[in-house]
């Protein structure tokens, strides 16, 4: 089980950076089909900066680390995803407060706050074919798992599985938010890139928690 203090949180996000890098081309391809083809590059630019800038000093809280990641993403990602992921992480940090270590309940609360942040900025509803369609099922699954006393690893594993299913379920949808909405009916039949990146990030976090 990973360490759930600031250092562990930082390590988990550095691992996310590796996953983003690995899947950059895939995300570009998805975004090219129904957007402008930059989602992979946007996230890679942002997470490369996370690797450069995010450090955790002795005694840093998870919240402090999340604030650094959020600020870095906001100032480097651009596009729709930058403010959305940035706001999500800011809110997630605020939700967990200044505790030195995370527990399963805190993780579930953080995910819920992240979703609230994305919705507050982007005003997307479920079914609009956005990252919300991956994040919302993840939040619900995490809450249920935490409630029944699951470990952090279990909470994140279930959140990740739900996010993945949610992302896959965006394929038939017609986009109503973001660039893909300009395509109208033509957006159906494609996986939403932001939903996919949300699922990838959660899978990476779940992997960190399990290892």
């Amino acid at each position: 089980m990973m360490n759930c203090d600031g250092a562990g949180t930082a390590a988990a996000w550095l691992r996310v950076a590796g996953v983003v890098r690995e899947h950059c081309d895939e995300l570009v391809r998805l975004d090219r089909a129904i957007g402008d083809g930059d989602h992979g590059e946007n996230l890679r630019r942002g997470f490369d900066a996370v690797v450069d800038r995010v450090t955790s000093a002795e005694g840093d809280t998870p919240r402090a680390v999340l604030r650094q990641v959020a600020a870095t993403l906001i100032s480097t990602v651009g596009g729709a995803a930058g403010p959305l992921y940035g706001t999500a992480l800011l809110r997630a940090g605020n939700a967990i407060g200044d505790r030195p270590d995370l527990d399963a309940t805190a993780v579930a609360a953080a995910l819920e706050a992240a979703l609230e942040g994305v919705v507050a900025r982007g005003r997307a509803e479920p079914g609009d074919k956005t990252m919300v369609d991956a994040l919302r099922p993840a939040v619900l699954a995490a809450a249920a798992a935490a409630e029944r006393g699951a470990t952090i690893a279990e909470v994140l594993a279930e959140a990740s599985a739900a996010a993945d299913a949610g992302a896959q379920a965006t394929v038939p949808l017609v986009a109503r938010k973001g660039r893909a909405s300009y395509l109208g009916e033509r957006s159906a039949g494609h996986l939403d890139p932001g939903a996919r990146s949300t699922a990838l990030i959660l899978a990476s976090l779940a992997g960190s928690a399990a290892s």
């Binding site: 590059e41 990602v77 729709a80």
Partner: peptide, 11 residues
């Protein structure tokens, strides 16, 4: 100016 076809960032 943002990156090509990508919005600039708040900073």
């Amino acid at each position: 100016p943002g990156p090509v076809f990508t919005s600039p960032t708040p900073d």
